[in-house]
Simulated assay, not measured.
Amino acid sequence: MLYSDKAPDPVGLYPHARRVGNLLFLSGVGPRKKGSKDIPGVTLDNHGNIIAYDIEQQCHAVFENVRFILEASGARWENLVDVTVYLTNMKADFATFNKIYATYFKENQPCRTTVEVNALPTPIAIELKCIAAFEDK
Rank of each mutant, 00 (worst) to 15 (best):
residue 2 L to H: 06
residue 2 L to N: 12
residue 3 Y to W: 10
residue 4 S to T: 09
residue 5 D to L: 12
residue 5 D to I: 09
residue 7 A to E: 02
residue 7 A to C: 08
residue 8 P to H: 10
residue 8 P to D: 03
residue 10 P to H: 05
residue 11 V to G: 01
residue 12 G to W: 02
residue 12 G to E: 05
residue 14 Y to P: 09
residue 14 Y to K: 15
residue 14 Y to T: 15
residue 15 P to V: 11
residue 16 H to E: 04
residue 16 H to G: 07
residue 16 H to S: 11
residue 18 R to S: 07
residue 21 G to P: 06
residue 21 G to F: 04
residue 22 N to S: 14
residue 23 L to K: 14
residue 23 L to F: 12
residue 23 L to C: 11
residue 27 S to L: 08
residue 29 V to P: 01
residue 29 V to K: 04
residue 30 G to C: 09
residue 31 P to W: 01
residue 32 R to M: 13
residue 33 K to V: 11
residue 34 K to V: 07
residue 37 K to C: 05
residue 37 K to T: 11
residue 37 K to Y: 02
residue 38 D to G: 08
residue 39 I to Y: 01
residue 41 G to K: 14
residue 41 G to N: 09
residue 42 V to Q: 03
residue 42 V to W: 00
residue 44 L to Y: 03
residue 44 L to C: 09
residue 44 L to W: 01
residue 45 D to G: 14
residue 45 D to L: 14
residue 46 N to H: 12
residue 46 N to L: 13
residue 49 N to K: 15
residue 50 I to Q: 06
residue 50 I to W: 00
residue 51 I to W: 02
residue 52 A to H: 13
residue 53 Y to F: 12
residue 53 Y to L: 14
residue 55 I to E: 02
residue 58 Q to R: 13
residue 58 Q to D: 05
residue 59 C to R: 10
residue 59 C to M: 13
residue 59 C to Y: 02
residue 60 H to K: 15
residue 62 V to Y: 00
residue 62 V to H: 02
residue 62 V to Q: 01
residue 63 F to C: 14
residue 65 N to V: 06
residue 66 V to H: 03
residue 66 V to S: 03
residue 68 F to D: 10
residue 69 I to M: 09
residue 69 I to T: 07
residue 70 L to C: 10
residue 72 A to I: 05
residue 73 S to T: 07
residue 73 S to V: 07
residue 74 G to S: 10
residue 77 W to L: 15
residue 77 W to D: 09
residue 79 N to V: 06
residue 79 N to Y: 02
residue 80 L to R: 06
residue 80 L to V: 13
residue 81 V to T: 14
residue 82 D to C: 10
residue 83 V to M: 11
residue 85 V to G: 02
residue 85 V to W: 00
residue 86 Y to G: 04
residue 86 Y to M: 15
residue 86 Y to T: 03
residue 87 L to N: 04
residue 89 N to V: 02
residue 89 N to R: 14
residue 90 M to H: 05
residue 91 K to T: 12
residue 92 A to K: 15
residue 92 A to V: 07
residue 94 F to D: 04
residue 94 F to M: 12
residue 94 F to G: 04
residue 95 A to L: 08
residue 95 A to E: 08
residue 95 A to Y: 00
residue 97 F to H: 05
residue 98 N to R: 13
residue 98 N to A: 11
residue 98 N to G: 03
residue 98 N to P: 01
residue 99 K to W: 02
residue 99 K to D: 04
residue 100 I to Y: 01
residue 103 T to F: 01
residue 106 K to P: 02
residue 109 Q to H: 09
residue 110 P to L: 10
residue 111 C to W: 00
residue 111 C to I: 06
residue 111 C to E: 10
residue 112 R to Y: 01
residue 114 T to V: 15
residue 115 V to T: 11
residue 115 V to Q: 10
residue 116 E to M: 03
residue 116 E to C: 02
residue 116 E to P: 01
residue 117 V to R: 11
residue 117 V to C: 08
residue 118 N to T: 10
residue 118 N to K: 14
residue 119 A to E: 10
residue 121 P to Y: 03
residue 123 P to D: 01
residue 123 P to Q: 07
residue 125 A to Q: 03
residue 126 I to E: 00
residue 127 E to G: 03
residue 127 E to A: 09
residue 127 E to M: 11
residue 128 L to S: 04
residue 129 K to W: 01
residue 131 I to E: 01
residue 131 I to D: 00
residue 131 I to K: 08
residue 131 I to C: 05
residue 132 A to M: 07
residue 135 E to P: 03
residue 137 K to P: 07
